[in-house]
Computed example of a mutant assay.
Amino acid sequence: MKTPGGAPTSNSGGSAMKRILVPLLGDEGDRPALDLAAALARRRGAHIDAMLFSRDATDMIPLVGEGFNAAMIDSIVQAAEAQASERATAARATYASWREAAGVSEDAAGSRPSATFSTVTGHLPYAVALPARAADLVVFSRGKGDSSQERSGLIEIAMLESGRPVLLAASDGGGEVGRRVLVGWNGSAEAARAVAMTMPLLSTADAVTVLVVDDGDVTVTPDDLVRTLTLWGIAASGRTVKVSKEGVASTLEAEAAADGADMVLLGAYSHSRVREFVMGGVTDDALAGSSIAMLLAR
């Protein structure tokens, strides 16, 4: 890759994201996330932690309420344990078939991509926070399968509690990401942290576009961030567009498609979480679905 001025850059190797966490739930949503993680790992020689998150069956006891005798509670716990066992079997089978198809080794030595499988049993969705904090990146598919509500909970906790960027696959699964990136820029602290946390990805992109969506409440321009990215040796450009009637998220997606971008970077929950919940917001719209992979950080 070269800067706009033509000077070669050296944005590879040491700046790469080396540890990618892929939370699994033992359903059809696992494979798209693993495939996306493999595409990233191949470019960067990264290690993939495929981690099955399983709910502690005893967590069901406080939920049953009054009127349940010991036998009924035992039955509920046994059913939860049976479901956890089925999901574990499914997750292991998905992991095994994915690893064989992707040609990913379990040997982490050297610069080739590698992967390991493990299981975490705990209080969901909060159990994802600690392992996510030790990773460079957390990768999810969109909410799919019987566990879609649980996956949505894991995504939100990973975004709000881990301090790490979260990559959501495109709605159709998508392919390789990170070659052409569109940065949704509004000058917020969350957007600034998102850019800082994802510099290892941005610095290996072929092109980065900084887009300001003018919704009547934004006073920044893309120029300052473009300048910073250019000083890092990144082929960056910027522009400001008017928000469409469909909203900011749809505008970002449309502009990304027009640019041929394969990923959109956003600062998650730039407004308070309460305001996002009451009024809706760009983050929630991005979580709902997108034809382009979304990288969110906060």
Rank of each mutant, 00 (worst) to 15 (best):
D214N: 12
I292E: 00
R42I: 01
D224G: 14
K144L: 15
A288F: 09
A236N: 02
A158I: 06
T198E: 03
A102S: 05
G173T: 05
A249T: 01
P200Q: 07
N11R: 10
G280V: 10
A93T: 08
S147I: 03
G103T: 05
G26R: 00
D49P: 00
V166S: 03
A79N: 10
G267Y: 02
E246W: 08
S75Q: 14
E255A: 15
L124Q: 03
A257V: 15
A129E: 06
I76V: 14
S244N: 14
R19I: 03
A261V: 09
Q83L: 11
M60W: 15
D223A: 13
R92E: 11
R43D: 11
E66M: 15
E66D: 13
A39T: 09
R193V: 01
A135F: 00
S12W: 10
V77K: 12
M199F: 14
V282M: 12
H123A: 09
S97E: 07
E150F: 10
V166M: 03
P8N: 10
A108N: 05
D172P: 03
M60L: 14
L202D: 03
A41I: 05
Y126K: 15
R273M: 08
K18T: 08
S97D: 06
R193W: 01
A235Y: 08
V241D: 02
D56L: 10
V138N: 01
A158N: 06
E66K: 15
K245L: 10
S75D: 11
G178K: 01
D259M: 15
D206R: 09
H47P: 01
R43T: 10
S272W: 07
Y95H: 08
V278P: 01
F68G: 07
G260E: 02
A84C: 04
V181Q: 06
S162W: 05
V64H: 09
H123F: 14
V139I: 05
R298D: 03
S152M: 15
D56E: 14
D215N: 14
G153V: 07
A288V: 07
L130D: 11
M263V: 04
R133W: 08
R239A: 12
R179P: 08
L124F: 06
G216A: 04
H271S: 13
A71V: 13
V226S: 04
I73A: 07
V139S: 00
A33I: 05
F53H: 01
R42F: 09
P200V: 04
E176D: 09
E81H: 09
A235D: 13
L201G: 04
D215E: 12
R273V: 13
